[in-house]
Simulated scan of single mutants.
Amino acid sequence: MLLSNTEYIPGHRVSRHLGLVQGSTVRSKHAGRDLMAGLKNIVGGELKGYTELLNESRQEALDRMQAQAKQLGANAVINIRFSTSNIAAGASELLAYGTAVVIDSAA
């Protein structure tokens, strides 16, 4: 399945729009990661535990969005966007959404 954050995919023509598709995941922080993040705040630098958590969350949301698109018969998702929101103290949602389409190769 082709994924794009643009309105079209070069070399392809959208033959059908199937509608909005989305995938989300809600994750909470890990106490061990919080401890390490607190220590890292003292000396500065990347919070690798949180970077990994966000990467895993983005991938899971994308996978769920793709699964929904496949159920609709799509072979591509265009205009993909990400959104995050706090659900509760220490827990956040990561949402991936886009437009499921059927694309053909351009003539």
Rank of each mutant, 00 (worst) to 15 (best):
A88E: 14
G23R: 10
A31K: 12
Q71T: 06
R33M: 13
A106P: 01
N55K: 15
K48L: 02
E56G: 00
Q68P: 02
A69S: 07
H17I: 04
E7H: 04
E56K: 07
R16Y: 14
G49R: 10
G38K: 14
S85R: 15
T99V: 08
V102D: 07
V43R: 06
G32K: 06
V77L: 03
V102N: 11
R64F: 03
T99M: 14
R16L: 11
Y8F: 09
N86D: 12
Q66S: 09
L18D: 05
T51D: 12
T6P: 01
G23M: 08
M36P: 00
N86Y: 05
S85H: 13
A61P: 01
T51R: 15
S24D: 09
I9D: 07
A100V: 07
M36T: 09
T25D: 14
S15Q: 06
G45S: 05
G45Q: 07
F82R: 04
N55C: 02
A106T: 05
A89T: 09
E46Y: 08
R16Q: 15
Y50H: 10
S83T: 07
Q59T: 03
M36R: 12
N5G: 02
V77R: 03
E60I: 10
H30S: 13
T6H: 11
I78P: 02
D63S: 06
K29S: 03
I87Y: 05
H17W: 09
I80E: 04
N79A: 11
I78H: 04
T99K: 11
S28H: 10
V14K: 12
V21M: 02
Q71K: 08
T25H: 06
M36F: 08
Y97I: 00
S92M: 13
T6S: 11
G38L: 11
R33F: 13
G23L: 06
L62Y: 11
N75W: 04
L62D: 07
